[in-house]
Design a protein around this nucleic acid. Structure first.
Lengths: 109, 109
DNA sequence: GAACTCCGTCAGTTGACACTTACGTAAGCA
DNA sequence: TGCTTACGTAAGTGTCAACTGACGGAGTTC
């Protein structure tokens, strides 16, 4: 999960992920989408994405077909939703605690 | 926005952000929450978070008080929601295109 | 003004990372 | 078997990032 977030922090990898989100693509076609970098660079990005389980690899002859792993992406999304939400809950808790302190002070002093 | 995502990719910064999410805290207290690293390290993390506009800084005497910037966090959340959603839309588009191709082939051959 | 607190910043080190070129390897084809 | 295609991988480089210890500056206290 941490690896997935880290992988997504890189703009190029986000672009790659979008490319294979909706369609399975061979590494060569993915690389063609990024003329400013060499093919090995893309291959390495794909390895990172694969290790983060953000994409799956399927071999077909000499080609390797990549596709986005929507399951992991859903998990990551849930993780982030949890992150925001638990923060809001904490905000509520602190607000309540402050309220309690205020009441206690008013009562004791 | 890119800076914010990159800042969040670091677990320590996520922890710091949670800490100041619900309450304004001086740098010293934040640093106390992380005994395994030195105070300057936390100060640098706070600088990164501040430059990504994920936290705001307020000076009060010799102290500097930090608080999470929920606006930026909302923006980041929207950005990610857009990322997922536009991917899904593309998925739909490709599905439609495939359907069209199928129909065209059926008609022509 | 002297001392103390709180905190950022500088200099330097270490490790990670995005990238390159060169090479290796597995699968299809003559 | 040799050649070609489609890849990953190894090795090396420049850059960035996380961290440490040492220092400096702003603000309060006496």
């Amino acid at each position: 999960m941490d690896a997935a977030l880290k992988a997504l922090a890189e703009p190029r990898r986000r672009a790659i992920l979008r490319l294979v989100w909706s369609q399975e693509l061979p590494a060569s076609e993915i690389a063609e989408g990024f003329p400013d970098v060499t093919r090995p660079a893309i291959s390495q990005h794909l390895t990172v994405l694969k290790e983060a389980e953000l994409v799956t690899e399927r071999r077909e002859g000499t080609r390797r077909l990549y596709r986005a792993n929507t399951d992991t992406m859903a998990e990551l999304r849930a993780f982030l939703d949890d992150y925001w939400t638990s923060g809001l809950e904490r905000l509520r808790d602190v607000a309540e605690a402050a309220e309690n302190r205020k009441r206690a002070t008013k009562g004791s002093s």
